[in-house]
Write a protein that binds this DNA or RNA. Sequence first.
DNA 1: TAATAAAATTGGACCGGTTCAAAAGGGGTA
DNA 2: TACCCCTTTTGAACCGGTCCAATTTTATTA
Lengths: 342, 342
Amino acid sequence: MATIRDVAKYAGVSVGTVSNVLNHSPLVRPDTRERVLAAIEALNYHPSAAARSLNTQLTETIGLVRTELRLSDKPSEPDPFVLDLIDGVSTAAMGTGIGLSFWTIPVGPGELKLYQRLVRGRQVDGLILFAIRERDPRVTFLKEENFPFVVFGRCNGDADVHWIDVDGAYGIEQAVRHLAELGHTRIGYVSPPSEQQLTHHRWAGFQRGMKMAGSAIDMNLVVEGDYTERSGQLGMHYLLDQSHPPSAVICNNDRMAFGAMRAIQARGLAVGQDISVVGFDDISLARYWHPPLTTIRQPTHKIAEMLFTLLQSIIAENPAEELSKQLIKPELQIRNSTGSIP
Amino acid sequence: MATIRDVAKYAGVSVGTVSNVLNHSPLVRPDTRERVLAAIEALNYHPSAAARSLNTQLTETIGLVRTELRLSDKPSEPDPFVLDLIDGVSTAAMGTGIGLSFWTIPVGPGELKLYQRLVRGRQVDGLILFAIRERDPRVTFLKEENFPFVVFGRCNGDADVHWIDVDGAYGIEQAVRHLAELGHTRIGYVSPPSEQQLTHHRWAGFQRGMKMAGSAIDMNLVVEGDYTERSGQLGMHYLLDQSHPPSAVICNNDRMAFGAMRAIQARGLAVGQDISVVGFDDISLARYWHPPLTTIRQPTHKIAEMLFTLLQSIIAENPAEELSKQLIKPELQIRNSTGSIP
DNA sequence: TAATAAAATTGGACCGGTTCAAAAGGGGTA
DNA sequence: TACCCCTTTTGAACCGGTCCAATTTTATTA
């Protein structure tokens, strides 16, 4: 495999000059540059990423961390929303030459070990974190290390943490308003896991929405899910078993909404007629569901691109403040899983 | 940031000894090892990935390449099946310390440039390729370079290419048999893009199945799709517009099957009663569809794990031949989108 | 106790780039 | 022609590890 010294010899120049050509330094005389480029071509030379990052301290790679809850011993089903985000970041990175490292890291004691390795071993130039928890130890750690990172989800306590979030409270509020306009007053709520940071915002939105609609929250109609279809299904069955079941339910992601719809249909009830269902995320299959799901849409691609761009700017030590701490307004997509009260 | 020399000084040993401790060499006396480990702990030292890979020529990272067809100027929708595979590989890699680099590379002239950078720049130790095309230039290139890689999809021409594939012909054949048993003789077929390598195998399976069922193939009932819902929808409309429309249709992935179902339902026909639909992949949402989709299941997690393990063995220059060139039998999942002929 | 073998440790060369102070080259002017 | 200044080019030090031949320490044997 050709090295920079081979190229230098072949072109009859010094390694310094070849390096300058590689880094587009304006110091090189045009004809010299041509000669070097010809040598690079002739030897099919490509610089070693490792050697380069050894001096620059940059890897040209950013890391995405997907957490694995590991509720059971078998791996959990992948969440399409997270995968879509990853897809979006990958698309944003395409053509920039920036690589994407993708890690699945189980939550739990000792999880920081892995982040340490990534950070102190300089395996990536920066990190994007999803599924932020309340007082997330990863945020504390990365801040301490002064390592470039961005978070999808709010970190209000920390003024110097860069994050981008969707205004979940607003989204839920819109959903409640929509249901209230259809005449619903008994509205069920399938919450995200309580340790998630977004759970509180969403709940505040629910409270606000219900207050504005003039409806009372019945705590018997509130269950906590874990983002899986199964938990949505179980949660819905629980709600339907109440003495005064709800006429509508808001699920905090689409997968749980799908599960809820199954539960409803399993009892011979019609979704959108007997019981209305609202989801959250608008994953690509939501609109193809039967009936198509009314859901609060998160603009995945936009978010992914913003996260990527923001992180890039932080790595370049010139944070794009206009992107940081942005609350993106989600949009309610009204489809057929919601209807007026029978 | 502490370096290996700092650790050596702190522990009162030489760098060589520290390196030996890091690499679990048995040469180090236990008490020396303890001293070094204590120093590592005290200084919170983590070895630099770049420096290490500069000598070992290994990055401890493997690359996954997802191709982007770029039919339009806006990015195409991510395919859940591919994302599930990526998820599976990531899960397989979890805990091994191996990183995953994820690249989206557009198909087209000049695509090899990017692979060259990955390979000759030693950005990854090996590659996993999906969506193999007939005479795929990437395979040729990687073989020439003698670079470790595995392919999801057959590469029969090349004895020394390691691949793992699903027996698509068998799968399609099972689907045809299932439909034939339900009394269907006019079976439509929505093909994968023709340049894909798997297209031929699947078609052979269709021919074989139809022959065994004693039915003739009507080429008016065959359309080519591009894996998107939309192409399934358009294809189905086309089939239904024929003078003798089919009573059943096999779609070569679930997304196209979903599209086909929409087209059928849009015409007021009932899927599974008026027209039967079979998909391919069994992505996680297929069984939640309405009606639940009969589909040929690819065991994503198993495939992903095999690909990962096989690639690891190739990188270690000790190929797990028993994993290579394996044809995995897919399994028909019979649900409600297929039924006997009316 | 000396000689010898085995175990543990050392330290410098090396991986392949970047960086920058110093040297060389080129052109203009007196 | 000599001198000066600006543009290019050079090459050695450095990034932070691994590797291994040489050396030192420890254990074994005569």
